[in-house]
Amino acid sequence: MNLFVTLLRRETTALFVSPIAWAVIAVFLLLMGYTFTMNLFIAKTASLTHIFFQAAALLVLIVPILTMRQFAEERRGGTLELLLTAPVPEHAVVLAKFGAAWIVTLVMIGLTGVYAIVLGIWGTPDWGPVYAGYVGLVALSAALVSLGVMVSALTSNQIVAAMVTLGLFTLMWMVDTLATLLPAGIDNVLIGVSLLAHVTPFATGALYTSDFGFFIVLTLAGLFFATRALGRR
């Protein structure tokens, strides 16, 4: 546990020392703030449903930038060799990398809580969907960060890691649109792996264990394969 905390502290510090985390948080909040303002003052709706959909879509675009360096940079700089020849189990390294990048995404998501507070002050929002939306974003971000860390563990090139992760996320986001072209049976499989299909219930205020399960399975699978990728030397 102490070992994990030591690694997590270093990883989190490394992310916040680099300008990437700050740039990502700033751009995310800028775009979210723009949408919230338009939603509130032009559409005049006291709801965060649009905000949650946009936040989810932005996470799909932004998480690859956060996770691309996690292992790729260590591999390129040789520090991975230093880390993995110390008496440290691979899974502790993976969990620390995952934890650090997830903390950054949680900070981003947490800061959008200001919008909920503003809604609460100036209007009477239905709080159920607001809570559900945030739970959904937290679950989605865990799955995305885990998959991003997994891809980063497979390459020493940050750009390759970012592009492969982005491609994977985009495909998983919109794969359900392909379902309409496929025969019954197969279409359900594609809908079952679609990020959008599992985010939508959360964003609209519905909590299903199947959606939770989906994101938990993705998160665990990403961490498992990242650990396997590190062990494959």
Partner: peptide, 25 residues
């Protein structure tokens, strides 16, 4: 172990890096 290209974390201070490695070891 000291690898060939002396990989270190450049943004860390020397004593921070050594304390980090001590905990790992």
């Amino acid at each position: 172990y000291v690898p060939e290209d002396v990989p270190l974390y450049p943004q860390m201070r020397v004593h921070e890096f050594l304390a980090f490695m001590a905990r790992l070891r």
